[in-house]
Nucleic acid binder design. Structure first.
Lengths: 345, 345
DNA sequence: CTGAAAGCGCTAACAT
DNA sequence: ATGTTAGCGCTTTCAG
């Protein structure tokens, strides 16, 4: 039997050395030209370009980064790759980072603290120059070291404890207030709340907004109309079903997240209740298909793309000026009235 | 005014050199231990571990990769970060790659050929060890160089032209056939098709499946009941609305993608038609919220996660055995009957 | 305007 | 079982 060797020719990637030989200059010159530092005659510049093309040369980022101790890699960690709220944010981040010549390295923490820690580690050993992340945990300790390090970091959507970090968040309380107030103005008096877990800051804030809206309107709170579970569809389904099955049921329900609202809608339908005639629904967070739902869902919309964009800009600014003071950006929500709350069109 | 210096101490990341000094051994030993190559006494092993912890050492991947000429970075390119079909695939990929100790580098081509080319370039200069991608273009030329290179690549969901590439695709034609046949067996005779663009292979295949199902059942095709547009929700809305507004309208509509089905559902609702009583609906591709829709949508489900998993496995196998022959995996769809096609529950 | 040379932090022979 | 050494491919002084 013939000995088995690697089939294809070893055709390694061309190095800067080969380009330089090809162009009859030194590697230093090639490096300079490639870095766009000018200071080279038209002629050499030309020859180098040609050589690069002919050889199909591509800069080896490992070597380059190692030597220059710089990187244009920005780490992005989100809790769920499948949640359009998060991917929408990533879209916004990409938009501005790409424009600025940075590359994003996306990691998925799967809402798991250990997993998140591992990804964070990985990103750092990848020598990213900055980090954008949506924390999976509310415990500040988990991120204390991040703040201590010199890596520029901005937290998105939620800021655990009182961490000294740049951040971009959403005015959840004001948003919920706005949504519930709209319901009240539309004439509803008996308004329920189906919320996410109280441990999650954004859910708590939305709950507060709900309560404040009711109280401001002189309506009193009914514990039996206030439920909280997880941010899953199933939880929304069960909580809503239970709430609407009571003898004295609310005429409107404010639901704390989009996914939960899906479940709520299912519950309402299953109970044979008409939306919005028998029960109005208002969700939090908008999705491309909210308008395609049946009925089209009214929501308090978060400026998803803008959240990402702002966070990226914050990071870019800090990259330029590391000594900047800490900045917290709070973005406002938009009320999107469709048909599920009885006041649409 | 005092001169302004960088505020924090320069606190650079510790290098392997420092760890080695700290532990009183050579860098080689540290490197070996860290690589888990054994061959070190318990004692040193212990001391090294301690040193690593104390210093908070993290291996510099650039240096490591540069030296060893290896990488465990796998590039993944998808056309749309916001499309749950694609992110679902990424989820599957992650699952197996993570398990195998690889890191994924996700890039977004935004369905733009130029952008895709740029991302592909970037990934290669990042020295990835393999590539998984969902092509944005159907033109084989755009990817010819990818096949020629020695980089292991697997194409997902669609394979441009007759490219010599490992691939994982879905049995679109069979899936559509299955879905439409179900409609026929449920008693529908007048079945319309609202499809994606004919230029896209998957749409074409689904159209073929639709036609074959009708013909096999002895039903004849009506051009006025067959529409194709884009894979956007808006397109589904318009096409469906137009089709159902005709005097002689179909009693069931097979819709070529999930997003399009959303639009179709909206059109049907706007027309005041009851689903499934007046018109049945069957979509292609399943989503977490399909069941939460109103009515719950019946669909031909693609094994999203499995697609990702298989692709990743294919890549892993090729990484081990680069000389393997080219393999094309075709995955089957599942019929998920819910209420929109009148035969559910 | 260009080149020589010195590493960045790490790994892998090769010694011991 | 551990240390020595020679680079990986690139950037960046420092000289010319």
């Amino acid at each position: 039997m013939s000995s088995h060797k690697r089939a294809s020719s070893p055709k390694r990637k061309p190095t800067i050395r080969e380009v330089s030989r090809h162009a009859g200059v030194s590697t230093a010159t090639v490096s300079r030209v490639l870095a766009g530092l000018g200071g080279a005659s038209e002629a050499t510049q030309q020859r180098i370009e040609t050589a690069v093309k002919e050889l199909g040369y591509q800069r080896n980022r490992m070597a380059s980064g190692l030597r220059s101790q710089r990187s244009t890699l920005v780490g992005v960690v989100i809790p769920d790759l499948q949640n359009p709220f998060f991917t929408g944010i990533v879209g916004g981040i990409e938009e501005v980072l790409h424009e600025a010549g940075y590359t994003i390295f996306l990691a998925n923490s799967a809402s798991d603290v250990d997993r998140e820690r591992a990804e964070l580690q990985m990103l750092q050993s990848e020598r990213i120059c900055g980090l954008l992340f949506i924390p999976s945990s509310a415990s500040a300790e988990a991120y204390q070291d991040l703040c201590d390090g010199e890596l520029p970091v901005v937290a998105i959507d939620r800021v655990p404890g009182g961490l000294a970090l740049d951040s971009v968040t959403v005015a959840n309380e004001a948003g919920a207030f706005q949504g519930v107030t709209h319901l009240i103005e539309a004439g509803y008096r008996k308004i329920g709340l189906v919320n996410g877990p109280d441990e999650i800051v954004v859910a708590r804030e939305r709950g507060t907004g709900y309560r404040r809206a009711l109280q401001d309107a002189g309506l009193k709170l009914r514990p039996s109309w206030m439920a909280s579970g997880s941010f899953q569809s199933e939880s929304g389904y069960e909580l809503t079903k239970a709430m609407l099955s009571k003898k004295n049921r609310p005429e409107a329900v404010f639901v704390g997240s989009f996914v939960t609202a899906l479940g709520a809608l299912r519950a309402v339908t299953e109970l044979g209740l008409k939306v919005p005639d028998e029960v109005a629904l208002m969700g939090f967070d908008d999705m491309p298909w909210a308008a395609a739902m049946n009925p089209p869902l009214s929501v308090v919309a978060q400026p998803v793309r803008e959240i990402g964009r702002s966070a990226a800009k914050l990071l870019l600014e800090r990259l330029e000026a590391p000594d900047l003071g800490i900045r917290s950006l709070v973005l406002n929500t938009d009320l999107v009235v469709r048909e599920s709350c009885g006041t649409g069109v």
